[in-house]
């Protein structure tokens, strides 16, 4: 069989290569095929990324009421958003929760990764277990945390009462509600980030540490002087990722208040994403919600840029 097919294939190749008119086709094959092969991603991105983005921009210029009319509004949605106290409150909430959640999360993930990078018994099992919170459904997480942070019968208030702290109403006070939600976020995402940090740490050449040990550098010194600077690219990725996730925070605060996008009786923990949801799907003001979505997009760009510049300075630049 192979005797039979091989010569034929060879003959075919030979024949294809010979006519000069067909040469362009093979060149097209070389030049265009790679693009064709990567195109599914770009087609999908255009359909589910670019198009909605443009469509949202388009609708943000209209007064679009789902149960009523569509009228041209120009920049009206944007100007009223910028003077809308509720929107600014949501922005402050989102940024505050992002900071409260992300700073401890990054530090914890880093130290966790460093610990996991050492020689341990059952290393694989321990590493895997760090990822467990991530595979838990966010709704299940929210249900458990909602009960932990309940005012009357919650475990957290019970424990705090041992230290003489009065019962905190975690849904009514602004800062406590932020802390509760940040805890939820951290519980879920710290392990994930730790695993990415761990992967980054494993790419750092061993001989750097060996040389440092010979020079008498302590373990701690090695962490700050070798691990951290070498981890910078990983850190940029992780921080940007957390910025996007943190600023679009939605599911946790939403479930924390019975799936009500108000986020507390007076929007104590309403995030921008919840604000958009509320405007779009409860007030049916799609234009206003679209404009808010674009402002959130800008906010994320700004946040990402600041964090990028900040992280680039970690460990000193050479």
């Amino acid at each position: 069989m192979s005797l039979d097919t091989l010569p034929r294939a060879a003959r075919n190749n030979h024949r294809r290569a010979r006519p000069p008119g067909r040469r362009w086709r093979s060149r097209l094959d070389v030049k265009a095929m790679p693009y064709a092969l990567v195109s599914p991603y770009f087609i999908l991105f255009a359909a589910f990324g670019l198009f909605p983005l443009a469509f949202t921009l388009y609708y943000s210029l209209y007064d679009y009421d789902l149960t009523g009319t569509v009228e041209w509004a120009g920049l009206g949605n944007y100007t009223s958003l910028l003077s809308d106290d509720d929107f600014w409150r949501a922005t402050v909430n989102t940024v505050s929760m992002f900071i409260i959640a992300t700073v401890p999360q990054m530090l914890l993930a880093l130290f966790l990764a460093n610990a996991l990078n050492k020689r341990l018994k059952f290393r694989l099992a321990i590493r895997m277990s760090v990822l467990l919170p991530l595979v838990t459904s966010v709704v299940a997480v929210a249900v458990v945390f909602t009960q932990l942070f309940a005012r009357d019968w919650g475990l957290v208030n019970y424990i705090l009462s041992w230290f003489g702290v009065d019962a905190t109403n975690w849904r009514a006070e602004r800062v406590p509600s932020w802390i509760a939600i940040a805890t939820m976020v951290d519980w879920r995402w710290t392990g994930y980030n730790a695993i990415i940090f761990l992967a980054g740490m494993q790419t750092i050449p061993r001989d750097l540490y060996e040389a440092a040990s010979i020079d008498g550098a302590s373990r701690r010194r090695q962490f700050w002087q070798i691990t951290l600077p070498m981890l910078r690219p990983t850190m940029i990725f992780v921080v940007l990722n957390s910025t996007i996730g943190g600023l679009t925070l939605f599911a946790e605060p939403m479930t924390f208040y019975n799936g009500n996008p108000d986020g507390g009786s007076q929007g104590q923990f309403q995030t921008v994403a919840m604000f958009i949801y509320k405007e779009a799907f409860r007030e049916f003001d799609f234009g206003y919600a679209s404009a808010a979505a674009w402002l959130l997009f800008l906010l994320i760009l700004i946040g990402a840029a600041i964090n990028f510049l900040f992280v680039r300075r970690i460990g000193g630049t050479k």
Partner: peptide, 14 residues
């Protein structure tokens, strides 16, 4: 893109 994500979430939660 942002809003599509949210719509997805909303739909998913619904």
């Amino acid at each position: 893109m942002m809003i599509s994500k949210r719509r997805g979430l909303a739909a998913a939660s619904a």
